[in-house]
Design a protein around this nucleic acid. Structure first.
Length: 226
DNA sequence: GCGACAG
DNA sequence: ATCTTGTCGC
């Protein structure tokens, strides 16, 4: 069992305090012994108000074949508040994670990593709790300034905070299509986050780990009663 | 006060 | 995220 507990917070004030405290623990470098054999994709859908359905899909990092698929359906307490997404999706993610048998080497989350108001988006928060490398793949902008990248696949431009520090990248994963917002979660740097995002991107805008997790989250949603 | 605002 | 079918365009 993967026993990882999520610190309960009762309101946004406490949530923000926790984020500020946790961000100091982030390590933005790949571990020396990092070996990439499997990668996990995470996503959450909401079949009905107050109920969430999380999916974690584990893929071979070399062939992208599905190694494991786990899901969990439960009540979600925390409301959606911009900047506090991890408090809404974190609990159900950990419950789902307790069901997987493999130990993914890397995790891709549907949201921001360090490109966040307090430097601790969903991917960073979860990576920290797991103690594993994680990357945030967001479909839209949340925080930081940036210029649009070139139109060719692979081109990117930095996302900077008010100080000028680079906290993420706007990456073109498909020529001529809307770019994705990539930022390191935990135990990884920006360069590798970009490199790995491209490595797992096939013919679609969203890289396979997160794209497949989303597809399953929608497919299983119909299996659950409404 | 005004505009922005992951999923 | 979710409510929702077909349709125009690359």
């Amino acid at each position: 069992m993967n026993i990882v507990k999520f610190e309960k917070v009762s309101d946004s004030r406490e949530a923000i305090m926790l984020q500020k405290q946790l961000k100091s623990q982030l390590i933005l470098d790949l571990p020396k012994a990092f070996e990439l054999r499997t990668v996990a994709g995470v996503d959450v859908s909401f079949p009905e108000p107050g109920m969430g359905l999380c999916v974690i899909i584990v893929l071979s990092a070399t062939t992208l074949e599905i190694i494991e698929l786990a899901h969990h359906f439960m009540k979600v307490e925390f409301p959606y508040i911009s900047g506090l997404l991890s408090f809404r999706e974190g609990p159900i993610f950990l419950e789902t994670h307790a069901k997987i048998n493999s130990q993914p080497d890397l995790y891709f989350f549907d949201g921001q990593g360090t490109a966040h108001p307090r430097g601790l988006g969903l991917a960073s928060h979860m990576g920290l709790l797991l103690g594993k490398p994680s990357v945030g793949i967001a479909k839209s902008h949340l925080f930081g300034s940036y210029e649009n990248p070139g139109l060719d696949k692979g081109q990117w431009s930095p996302i900077k905070d008010h100080t000028g520090n680079i906290i993420g990248a706007v990456l073109r994963t498909r020529t001529g299509k809307k770019p994705v917002f990539v930022s390191p979660g935990h135990l990884i740097d920006i360069k590798h986050s970009i490199e790995l995002t491209l490595k797992f991107t096939t013919k679609y805008r969203i890289p396979e780990p997160t794209r497949l997790a989303h597809i399953w989250t929608q497919k299983l949603k119909r299996t659950i009663s409404i």
